[in-house]
């Protein structure tokens, strides 16, 4: 089986999200990466070094500059003439592009797979992760998005794939990029962080988030996350949100502070290795999944914890 993998990149660098997808793809067959964008030669060179990658297709064209699905999907659909499967990470980019590709190929997409059970059989979470479905695809070509926390990352070094330029399919003329507001942070990226400190509604304000959550995160070298309630209340930007509708994370340590543990939040973090919960309500549902729980006032506990670590 020949598998085409969507390489996600940012500012000329290959993003970590691509690496678990390479691992998933290698279970199916021969792995080729597609790097599409404008001025993305350096990202293609990085992609060529990833262990397990046999070829890198480079589509360097102004039409692909901002990953617009309307321009990128026809390119992928055309390249799929020579492939049996297309895999993309279940990031916002992958989720935006892959279903458009699937419809162009007239196949059903399999979203957010957790495992590869066979060349046409996969598992995926449904109902906010409250159930896991095993599905078998009858389509000749598979289009799949991969939950990046469910697969090990392929090594960034060790491969020596050839980079082969491919012809573009041009600008579909349906959409254009206006601008972006990307939050820049010195801290680790949420989806790939080993440790995450997350805050909820109980913080009460944006100031409290800065005062209590961030120093603890910095002490642990952790990324900062949040519940939907904290995001909706405006304490932190929406890209901090962990949960069914935000990011799905599985760090080694997840510290949930002032988060009650609604099923939508648990969907995003319950595969973390060690979950620590700090909450004043001893009946909060978060304690049902927490390995270690401490009942009490976060405004007293968190500074003490930060100081003693």
């Amino acid at each position: 089986m020949k598998v085409l993998v969507w390489a996600e990149h940012e500012e000329g660098k290959l993003r970590d999200a691509t690496l678990p997808v390479v691992t998933a793809a290698a279970r199916l067959g021969e792995v080729h990466l597609i790097v599409a964008g404008s001025g993305v030669g350096p990202a293609a060179d990085e992609a060529a070094k990833v262990a397990g990658v046999e070829k890198v297709l480079l589509a360097d064209d102004g039409a692909y500059a901002n990953g617009l699905a309307e321009n990128v999907a026809p390119l992928v659909a055309k390249l799929m003439e020579g492939y049996d499967a297309f895999l993309a990470p279940a990031t916002t980019t992958g989720k935006n592009i892959a279903p458009r590709v699937a419809a162009l190929l007239d196949v059903m997409q399999i979203s957010d797979i957790l495992s590869v059970e066979g060349e046409d059989t996969f598992t995926r979470p449904i109902y906010a992760g409250n159930a896991v479905a095993t599905v078998k695809s009858a389509d000749a070509k598979k289009v799949i998005t991969v939950r990046t926390t469910a697969f090990e990352k392929a090594a960034r070094e060790g491969g020596s794939a050839a980079v082969e330029p491919v012809a573009g399919t041009g600008d579909a003329g349906l959409s254009s990029f206006v601008g972006a507001e990307i939050a820049h942070s010195e801290r680790p990226e949420l989806t790939s962080a080993k440790i995450i400190v997350s805050g909820g509604r109980a913080l009460g304000s944006s100031e409290a988030f800065h005062q209590y959550i961030e120093p603890l995160a910095d002490k642990l070298g952790a990324a900062v996350g949040a519940s939907r309630a904290a995001v909706d209340a405006g304490y932190v930007p929406n890209d901090y949100q962990v949960g069914q509708t935000g990011k799905v994370v599985a760090p080694e340590l997840y510290v949930a502070i002032g988060i009650s543990g609604a099923i939508q939040h648990l969907a995003g973090m319950k595969d973390s290795k060690l979950i620590v919960a700090i909450n004043k309500d001893e009946d909060a549902p978060i304690f049902q999944v927490a390995d270690l729980g401490l009942v009490g006032d976060l405004f007293k506990i968190v500074p003490e914890l930060t100081e003693k670590l």
Binding site: V107, M108, I110, T121, P125, I126, G129, N130, A131, V132, A133, T134, V135, K136, S137, A138, D139, L253, K270, L274, I275, V276, E282, F287, V289, A290, D291, L292, G293, L294, V295, I301, E304, L305, K308, L309
Partner: peptide, 29 residues
């Protein structure tokens, strides 16, 4: 196009413990 072969409960987490103090929490982590 897809057949659901099986729907299962996700793996359950082992019940955790509640600790009494910050020191105990740090030790356990």
């Amino acid at each position: 196009r897809l057949t659901t072969l099986k729907v299962a409960e996700p793996p359950r987490r082992q019940a955790g413990v509640k600790v009494a103090s910050v020191e105990e929490l740090i030790d356990k982590i």
